[in-house]
Design a binder for these strands. Structure first.
Length: 511
RNA sequence: GGCGCAUUCGUCUAGUCAGGCCAAGGACGCCGCCCUCUCAAGGCGGUAACAGGGGUUCAAAUCCCCUAUGCGCCA
């Protein structure tokens, strides 16, 4: 992407100040999380400050639960903030519901400076005039009917208590948004309506509130989604009208679903907490979100938050939309799980084991649980992927799945083979990895002596020990149960199938 | 409807600012092979793209113009 970097600081503090300003009207969305990440990386890389501001003026849709989900999710991802509603800061308060007075004052100031005016048009009147204009083939803009109200007329309407909105008087000329990714974006102000800054119910519009907050919180860089690009024209106007320098903008692309539409519920899980519960590591999610639209410029793909902080550069951000691809996230999650030690994987897994009520596994001695986890971790894409495979260690002996049974029925010399397995296992007693490996190679040799393939012995061994056709590597199974324990399991699982207590098996003792 | 932004393999992207190193590189996915007691994992290999059209130039994915498409915002 072409560069449009400027060193000019837009605040007077000499260090960058960025903000993440979610509305607590839903759980933290992946798209918002990506915006938060870009802000955070920008702040941390440039030794600036990250501000969390809650845009909670919509009392009906905002809730404390959502607020908690947002802060918990950010914290989980490792994205902290230097100022915010919970920790305060020099520009408090950090929630818009506590800043209404500021917006009211700003609106009054604009009104008395003649940079804004009262509009008494009702939605019905507006819609009627709009329809008419369109029917005549025109392009509708607010017609400034109320800008031209006689003083007397306005006074009368006010006295009557007629509700009014406050509109910003858009000055003529060209408006420029300076964007770090896209350069100078210009538009003729004729294209911009005299937009509403205070609604008829007295609430400040999004535009007014954001700009007033960004000014008073001395925000130097506004990093947000592409969907705000054309809103920024209005914001530039407001910064000017309020006598403030305009911050540097960066509008990153939107994250969309496979169908190209903005990522939403119908694409499946969309909140950070959904992914947390689905067994994704925060480091993997962060890595994935960063890699969507950002590239270090070389071929590296696996990054920790620390590495990203070090490497992050807005020049690496792409301006085009990014399709959310669960396959790549899965792959990255796998890689991040692989980077952990087995002890760390166990730790990450504990909440899931508890939640799923895996009490047999939770009551295992630490080293047994570690062997179990070690044996399944290479097949894990998500933490949840460990749950089902681990069940094999929780099941008591005395069971043969239909598939395992049918496999054993197909096996020739099954009694002889099982007898070899049991006697080999019984001759060892240590549960360490070397012993387990030695048992396997002994069995391989014994197969070879008889002119058999290794599979001829090892496959029935698996079936006999686990009662299942699929499961972890044999070495881990032997380590987990111990050689003697493994032999016992074979006897119990195969009890009704072959008589192993009888030293003279059906085919006789071949050793 | 107006305005704005975007457009390289199915997907994420490198390359575009400083035209030749690009018969376009990497990664995910997919396919195949190897490994192998199972399921996998892993290793190796393959597949596949400069939206279209004009121009500028000795040379264009890269510069200019037009068109198309997608998305966003405002109503």
């Amino acid at each position: 992407m072409v560069l449009f970097l400027e060193n000019r600081r837009s605040n007077s503090l000499g260090y960058p100040r960025v903000r993440f300003a979610p509305s607590p009207t839903g759980k933290l969305h992946l798209g918002s999380a990506r915006t938060a990440l870009f802000n955070w990386l920008f702040a941390r890389h440039n030794k600036g400050k990250m501000i969390l501001r809650l845009e909670d003026t919509d009392a009906l849709r905002s809730s404390k639960d959502f607020e908690r989900d947002i802060t918990d999710s950010l914290t989980w991802m490792g994205l902290n903030w230097d100022e915010g509603p919970d920790i305060g800061g020099p520009y408090a308060p950090y929630r818009q519901s506590a800043r209404l007075e500021l917006y009211r004052k700003a609106a009054e100031g604009l009104l008395s400076d003649k940079k804004a005016y009262r509009c008494f048009c009702t939605p019905e009147e507006l819609s009627e005039r709009k329809q008419k204009t369109i029917a005549q083939g025109g392009t509708w803009r607010y017609d400034r009917k109320c800008l031209h109200l006689e003083e007397e007329g306005e006074k009368r309407l006010l006295e009557e208590g007629k509700p009014y909105a406050i509109r910003f008087l858009v000055p003529p000329g060209e408006i420029t948004v300076k964007d770090l990714l896209r350069g100078d974006i210009k538009v003729d102000s004729k294209e911009i309506d005299d937009f509403i800054i205070v609604r008829s119910d007295g609430r400040a519009s999004f535009h007014l509130a954001v700009v007033v907050d960004d000014i008073s919180m001395k925000i130097s860089h506004v990093i947000r989604g592409d969907d705000h690009l054309t809103n920024s024209f209005r914001h530039v106007l407001l910064f000017d009208a309020l006598g403030s320098p305009v911050p540097q903008f960066l509008h990153h692309s939107l994250m969309v679903g496979v169908d190209g539409a903005k990522l939403s519920k119908r694409h499946g899980a969309t909140s950070v907490s959904d992914y947390r519960e689905a067994g994704y590591l925060p480091s993997a999610l962060v890595n994935y979100l960063a890699l969507l639209s950002w590239s270090p410029g070389d071929e590296r793909e696996i990054f920790t938050l620390e590495e990203l902080t070090e490497e992050f550069d807005v020049r690496g951000i792409s301006a085009s939309k990014a399709v959310f691809d669960i396959d790549k996230l899965n792959w990255l999650n796998r890689r991040h799980i692989q980077r952990l030690s087995t002890k760390e994987v166990v730790q990450a897994l504990l909440p899931f084991l508890k939640k799923e009520g895996k009490t047999e596994l939770l009551s295992l001695p630490e080293e047994k649980l570690e062997i179990a986890v070690e044996s399944v971790r290479k097949n894990m894409q998500t933490l949840r992927d460990a749950l089902e495979p681990l069940d094999i260690y929780a099941k008591p002996a005395g069971y043969l799945s239909p598939q395992a049974k049918s496999e054993l029925e197909k096996t020739e010399n099954v009694s002889e083979i099982m007898e070899i397995c049991v006697s080999t296992l019984s001759s060892e007693s240590s549960s360490d990895s070397e012993t387990a490996q030695r048992i396997i190679s002994t069995l391989r040799n014994k197969a070879k002596e008889r002119g058999w393939s290794a599979k001829k012995v090892l496959w029935p061994l698996r079936l006999g020990m686990t009662g299942e056709t699929i499961g972890p590597d044999l070495v881990y199974l032997i380590m987990f149960w111990g050689p003697k324990g493994a032999a016992e399991r074979i006897k119990k699982n195969l009890g009704p199938f072959v008589n192993l207590d009888d030293k003279e098996g059906p085919r006789g003792n071949s050793e």
